[in-house]
Design a protein around this nucleic acid. Structure first.
Lengths: 131, 131
DNA sequence: CCCATTACTTACATTTTTGTGCGTACCGCA
DNA sequence: TGCGGTACGCACAAAAATGTAAGTAATGGG
């Protein structure tokens, strides 16, 4: 999340991979906390502190980093009010909203297959099988 | 990609985050080479060596790791033939195919916004502006 | 016996991402 | 003058992902 080495193989490969439109898109939403943030913002504008408390586990540093990236990528809009104490709020851009249909599908898929996966693991691993 | 520390904050956070169905789903396809692999397999079965040569930049190690994960996640099916030299092929599972509609949307989004992003950067950075 | 082929392993190095803890500016209020 | 609240920034550390270079097994063919 800090600057990256432009010349590393890693970076070159990323460029190569994101020539695929699909990989490019997933890349934009692939950060650890990004989807959670975007999800919270679907309901409307939120301030930094609201996001922080709604997400709970996220640290301020991570929240800031992810918001900055989302902003750069054009998925969220950041608005700063010249007040003290400071007030900043974040909202989805139209570009982000275009992704919502895809989110819905992925969400449904996730819900379905997570349940299946849990079920399977229950079958495979009977709780502390004696003998 | 090696084993992960079950107790790390990182791991705990991942568990927390993937309680969100959407994040869970994206997590499954989020590896570096996964989407490229899945994309190639959309056209049908391919053997290991075919994938390797079609993707080009990927190393054998990475290809193997990503395929193993996709297999664990139930997105690809691996078939080994008892021959020498060995022959192994990979194909999408039904679970993976359920994701295709979402891929199409993301792909279209990626194509559209990548072009826009390129266009913007051309405006902002006139090619080696003299004076 | 030596070689080529395929689909991997393994050990190791590098790069990137994520997390921790603490510090900052601003101003109004007590 | 000291304190509290907001939205960060920074240095550092840990963990995870990715990349590099080499090696392996099995076996049919020369």
């Amino acid at each position: 999340m800090g600057k990256r080495k432009q010349s590393s193989s890693n970076m070159q490969n990323e460029k190569f991979i994101t020539e695929c439109d699909l990989a490019y898109a997933v890349c934009k939403i692939g950060g650890r906390w990004k989807l959670l943030i975007l999800g919270k913002l679907e309901g409307g504008k939120l301030r930094y502190s609201e996001l922080r408390s709604q997400i709970g586990e996220v640290t301020e540093r991570m929240l800031t980093l992810q918001l900055r990236e989302l902003e750069k990528e054009g998925l969220v809009k950041r608005t700063v009010y010249a007040e003290v104490p400071p007030r900043v709020d974040y909202e989805l851009t139209d570009i982000a909203r275009e992704l919502i249909p895809a989110w819905r599908i992925l969400e449904a898929w996730g819900a379905k297959h997570r349940l299946l996966a849990q079920h399977e693991s229950e079958i495979k691993e009977p709780e502390t099988s004696l003998q």
